[in-house]
Simulated assay, not measured.
Amino acid sequence: MRLLLLAPLFLFLGGCVTNPGQTENDPNTGRLGADQNYESLSNTYIQLANEYMKRGDYATALNKAKKAVQRDPNNGNAHLVLGLIYEQLGENGSANAAYQRSLEVDSKNPYALNAYGSYLCKLGEYQKALPYFDRALQNPLYQTPWVALANAGYCARKAGDLSMAQSYLLKALERNPGFAMALYQMAEVRFAQGRYMSARAYLQRYREVAKPTAQMLYLSILTERKLGNDD
């Protein structure tokens, strides 16, 4: 089950406001809580980069993201989308630099914090990753906190801390009861805890909101075997 990185970026871009008179970050919410003076062409390039990423055309997406950075080097989202593209291309050094630059521009951007935490988790840097998810959740304007919570839960489980994983995932499901990633991860946690009836319940909830995957079906098979249902 992959970490969720890209989709929330569209929400942040949709909230940008152009106002040449205000460039300072809000001390509590960063640029989510302040008027923006981003050059409009830079944001256009970001949106184009996102669209090309969705199509799997990373060469064109990279070109557009670089143009976004060139048009406005202080646009944190430009560096964020550049980091996402480099990560997809497996260029970890460039991805790391782009993510860090995005957070230098706006240290409270929850979407950049979630993306960088997910990136570190993907590299196996679990203990370094978790604080970034926590920082993302501190921003009251974060529109999809269940994404960072589910990613934190996944990361905690990979680190071997089932109790912490469960805590994050249950909070994700409090915010969004139908969030498929959190439902699947809770099934994984319950299975690892030996709570097979509960694992089955979470898998059933998953099937109500998302199409089965090979990974999910295999976990279902293992769960039913543990429950003695060989058929």
Rank of each mutant, 00 (worst) to 15 (best):
Arg207Met: 08
Phe133Trp: 05
Phe10Tyr: 09
Ile221Gln: 12
Leu173Pro: 04
Asn25Pro: 02
Glu91Asn: 14
Ala172Ser: 15
Gln185Gly: 00
Gln193Asn: 12
Tyr99Gly: 07
Ile46His: 03
Trp146Ser: 06
Leu149Gln: 13
Tyr119Leu: 05
Gln143Ile: 07
Leu173Phe: 04
Lys226Ile: 08
Asp72Gln: 09
Arg31Glu: 12
Tyr38Phe: 15
Leu82Tyr: 13
Glu91Ile: 01
Arg55His: 07
Leu123Ser: 11
Val17Tyr: 06
Pro145Asn: 11
Pro140Lys: 08
Tyr142Ser: 02
Val209Pro: 04
Tyr126Gln: 03
Gly14Pro: 02
Ala34Ser: 15
Asn114Thr: 14
Ser220Phe: 08
Gly56Asp: 10
Thr144Trp: 04
Ala214Tyr: 08
Lys171Glu: 15
Tyr52His: 02
Asn109Cys: 03
Leu41Glu: 14
Leu84Ile: 05
Asp72Glu: 12
Ala34Arg: 10
Ala152Asp: 11
Arg207His: 09
Asp57Val: 00
Tyr52Met: 01
Pro140Val: 06
Leu130Ile: 14
Gln36Cys: 14
Ile85Trp: 13
Glu188Cys: 05
Tyr196His: 11
Met1Pro: 03
Asn176Met: 12
Ala152Arg: 02
Ala152Leu: 05
Pro177Leu: 12
Tyr132Leu: 09
Asn63Arg: 13
Gly21Trp: 07
Ala61Cys: 02
Met197Lys: 12
Leu9Thr: 10
Asp35Cys: 01
Leu183Ile: 04
Ala136Ser: 11
Ala59Gly: 01
Asn96Pro: 00
Val17Gln: 11
Tyr168Met: 00
Gln22Met: 08
Asn151Met: 10
Tyr202Lys: 02
Gly21Tyr: 11
Arg225Gln: 14
Trp146His: 14
Glu51Ile: 02
Asn176Thr: 02
Asp72Leu: 05
Lys211Gln: 14
Asp35Ala: 11
Leu141Gln: 09
Glu125Pro: 00
Ala214Gly: 01
Leu103Thr: 06
